[in-house]
């Protein structure tokens, strides 16, 4: 008989519009570094508990100014509170940075693929972060610490521009003291008052990997840094399927409909932001994508 039209669609009842934000209440705003701050948010009206998985992101809306994609940096084991660690880079992130506790902002999400915590179970977990790239990895650390028995060694390698720019510096020291956790920090630029590591974060990878066959690496930072990190990880014996990256592109809708975040065949918002390296290797090596 006849072909069905429009894939058997029937008119929908009123559904929540995926493009319309929910109101969130700002619980606190705290300064992390000179240009990075953290917002702690709580939904004001929402029926079910807001949960997220490490690596996912929200779209944050500054009233009348615009929206931007920000990864969730808080504790995944706590419901209904989301933290976002944000760098002031433009109008929206600048405006969000001037909110005060008690203010409201709009939130859509959570969106995107999480870090594969199931793949990390029973293995050494190696995190490599560059700059603000530490933000989406913080929930991984919290998850590992909350479920310590599920994972072997946790190693955190963190790179920043200079000593003042080290994100979560105090927490990195606290985490390092936990059993089975090591963290190494390095900066690209320092004068002789700094007696920590100087050099790009990828130089820390050497001699960090102990059991390459049983290690999983999660990497987040500037794209160039991630490419170098992948090279170092491979030199140290990790396979392409043991390396996961979190990528970034311009996003407008976060639901795979606006076309902005395309990265070759992938939509970063829908298929990512977390990708296994071998899935995006071809595209990562193309220029101006």
């Amino acid at each position: 008989m006849f072909m069905k039209i429009g894939s058997d669609l029937r008119p929908s009842s009123i559904q929540p519009d995926p493009m319309c934000p929910d109101v969130h209440h700002v619980m606190s705003i705290s300064q992390e570094t000179s240009d990075i701050y953290t917002l702690k948010l709580q939904p004001t009206e929402r029926r079910e508990a807001v949960r997220f998985a490490p690596g996912q992101f929200n779209m944050l809306y500054a009233f009348g100014v615009g929206e931007c994609a920000i990864s969730i940096s808080g504790d995944p084991t706590v419901n209904n509170v989301t933290e976002h660690t944000i760098r002031r880079v433009g109008l929206v992130t600048g405006t969000l940075g001037s909110v005060r506790a008690g203010d409201s902002i709009g939130v859509r999400g959570p969106f995107g693929t999480p870090w594969p915590m199931d793949q990390a179970r029973g293995r050494d977990v190696l995190l490599i972060a560059g700059g603000i790239g530490m933000a989406p990895l913080r929930p991984v650390i919290m998850d590992v610490l909350a479920n310590r028995e599920n994972y072997k060694e946790l190693t955190i390698l963190s790179g920043s521009r200079d000593p003042e720019g080290i994100l979560f510096a105090d927490e990195l020291l606290t985490w390092k003291k936990q059993p089975g956790v090591d963290s190494k920090v390095t900066v690209d630029h320092a004068d002789s008052r700094w007696n920590g590591n100087v050099g790009v974060v990828t130089t820390l990878v050497n001699r960090t990997v102990k059991d390459p066959k049983d290690t999983i690496a999660f990497v987040c930072g500037p794209e160039i840094m991630m490419r170098y990190a992948v090279t170092e990880l491979q030199k140290n014996g990790l396979g392409k399927d043991q390396i996961y990256l979190s990528l970034e592109r311009n996003m407008k809708c976060a639901i795979g409909l606006c076309g902005h975040c395309q990265f070759g065949s992938e939509f970063i918002c829908r298929d990512g932001p977390v990708f296994r390296y071998d899935r995006i290797e071809f595209w990562l090596n193309q220029r101006e994508l």
Binding site: D17, M19, D22, V23, Y61, F63, G64, S104, G106
Partner: peptide, 14 residues
């Protein structure tokens, strides 16, 4: 896509 109102106390409605 949507309209939003902000009241004097800073509350937001979508």
């Amino acid at each position: 896509l949507f309209q939003a109102e902000r009241s004097e106390d800073g509350a937001m409605v979508f």
